[in-house]
Design a protein around this nucleic acid. Sequence first.
DNA 1: CACGCGTGGAA
DNA 2: TTTCCAAGCGT
Length: 355
Amino acid sequence: MRDLSEELLAWYDVNARTMPWRVDPVDSKAGKRPDPYFIWMSEVMLQQTTVAAVKEYFRKFTTIWPTVHDLAAAEDADVMAAWAGLGYYARARNLLKCARVVVNDHGGAFPDSYDTLLTLPGVGPYTAAAVASIAFNRKATVLDGNVERVMARMHDIHDPLPGVKPVLMQYAETFTPNGRAGDYAQAVMDLGATICTPKNPACGICPWRDPCAARVAGTAAELPKKTPKKKTPIRLGYVYVARRDDGAWLLETRPEKGLLGGMLAFPSSDWSDDPTPDPPIDTEWIDSGYEARHTFTHFHLRLKIMTADVANPTSPDRGHFVNHNEFSPTALPTAMRKVFDLIPRRDATIENKAR
DNA sequence: CACGCGTGGAA
DNA sequence: TTTCCAAGCGT
C-alpha cells in the first residue's frame, strides 16, 4: 500500500475541526502537545457520542475539576450529577475510577503507552490508541466508527460489521504513518465525520478520492455493511413521585450496575411487559394520568407517573427524602428528567396529558 | 462474542 | 413517527 497519509495530513492541515481539547495542527507540528488529562476526558465523553453533545460537558468537567488530582478527589455523587444527560453512565463511574488509579498507581501522570493505557478503567482499544497518539504522539492506530467506514470504502469491503472489524483494523494499521501520529488519528476521524459520512459521502472533495475502491465501484454510500439489528420492544412501568409536606422529594440512587447505574432517580417498579406496582411508601398513590416516554438503546419505555403527598416525618421503604433546596433536576438522567417535567403543576395543561 | 448500556439530532 | 446513528467498553 502506497503511503496515502501525506495527502490526508495535508488536507487536515487546512480543514482540521476546532474543538476545545484539540491543539491546532500548526502548533502540533511545532511540537506542542495537549494535556493528556483533557484528551482522555474528551475521548471518554466521545465514546458513542457526538462532538456537539460533548463540548458543553467537557467545559463543565474541566472547569470543576481542572486536573486529574481534582477529579480523583471528587465525590462520586457530584461526578454522576455532572454527567447527567450525557448517557452511558458506566463511563462516568469508570472516569472517576480511572482518575483515582492514575493518581494512586501512576503518580498522577497518564501512561503514554498503549498497553498501559489499556489497563485503565473505561479505556478500551480505541481510547488507548487515541490517547497514546493524540496526547503523546505515539504511533497507534485508532479504529472507531469513522475509521471503519473509511477503510471499508477505501477497500470496497462488503462483509458486514462487526465480523469484519479485524480486517478493517489491519488496513487501518497499514495506513498509519510513523510521524504525526496524533494529527493522523484526528485527520482520519475528521475525514469520516465530515467527508466520508454514512449518508451522501462527499467523494468529490475527498483527499482520498482517487485511491478509494468503493468510489470507483460506486458502492461508497452503502458501506460499511452491518448485521441487521432487531427492533426495540416497548416496556412499561410505574414511577413514584412522593412529595413531603415540607417540599422534600423522595429519590433513590440506583444500583451501580445496570441501567442508569449510580444515578439519582425517582423510585419505580420493574420495567417490563407487565410491571408489578411497587410503591416505595405505603400510602395513598394517585394516578396522575401522565406518562413519561423515553427510548433507551434497546427498548422504548413508558412510565405511568404516580404521585403522593406525605407527612413529615415519613419513613420510605426505599429511597430517601431530599430537601427541596438541595434537589436539582439537572442531576437526573434524561428519562427521569422527563418524569420531573411532567409532574402535575399549577401551570400544567391538559394538552400534556398522555393519550 | 453477543449483548447491555443513553441521548439527541438528522433524514 | 420511526429509524439510524456518534471519536466504545465491560461482561
